[in-house]
């Protein structure tokens, strides 16, 4: 069953697109092309990620994830989180369902914030582009400052946000 109500924003934008196309056809066409391309990119990238998240959900025991990303995981928590975030591909919104799953399995808020921060700062496939476009100095400043900043943010957020309260919206369940 498709709930049409959940698509309202999409339809509003679609009307916007129609209006733009009506005023200027070239622009409308360009917008359709750009949108179509990013939808295609997304549909290619999402299935393997969601399959992996689904498998992770079924196979990884809570106790073992707590050991790697729980409150007392220390330096292993940092390294493990960094590893997870840097090998990943794709835009930040793909990291959201992964982060929620980790949280559900007992990862502490600190590492979730660090995970999201690292995902948006350091990614091995993207690093090459940054390196070739902006050089070593720029890249090193970006990475080292970003990681330190997000780790500290994680420490702060951990004091403010409760792990259990954040989990009331489980997106793997039916809404």
């Amino acid at each position: 069953m498709i709930k049409l109500k959940r698509y309202w924003f999409f339809f509003v934008l679609l009307i916007g697109l129609l209006v733009i196309t009506f005023i200027n056809q070239t622009m409308g066409l360009k917008a359709v092309q750009l949108t179509g391309k990013s939808i295609l990119d997304m549909l290619l990238l999402l299935p393997p990620i969601f399959i992996l998240v689904g498998l992770l959900d079924q196979w990884v025991k809570k106790e073992s994830l707590i050991r790697y990303m729980g409150e007392k995981s220390g330096i292993y928590g940092i390294l493990f989180t960094l590893l997870l975030a840097t090998v990943a591909a794709g835009p930040l919104y793909i990291a959201f369902p992964i982060a929620v799953l980790l949280l559900k399995k007992g990862a502490s808020v600190r590492y979730i914030v660090f995970f999201l921060g690292a995902w948006s700062t350091v990614k091995l496939p993207v690093l090459l582009y940054e390196f070739t476009s902006f050089g070593t100095k720029f890249t090193l400043i970006h990475i080292s400052f970003g990681l330190v900043f997000y780790y500290l943010t994680g420490l702060l957020f951990e004091k403010i946000y409760d792990q259990k309260k954040m989990l009331k919206n489980d997106i793997t369940m039916d809404a």
Binding site: F9, I20, M27, I39, V53
Partner: peptide, 28 residues
């Protein structure tokens, strides 16, 4: 696991389609 993956996909799809269209419009 696959059932979970499918539900996740179905839950984020409306938002993602809207995001893509929004970004397409902005970048134009």
């Amino acid at each position: 696991a696959l059932l979970r993956s499918w539900k996740m996909f179905r839950n984020v799809l409306p938002d993602l389609l809207a995001i893509m269209l929004f970004v397409g419009l902005v970048l134009t």
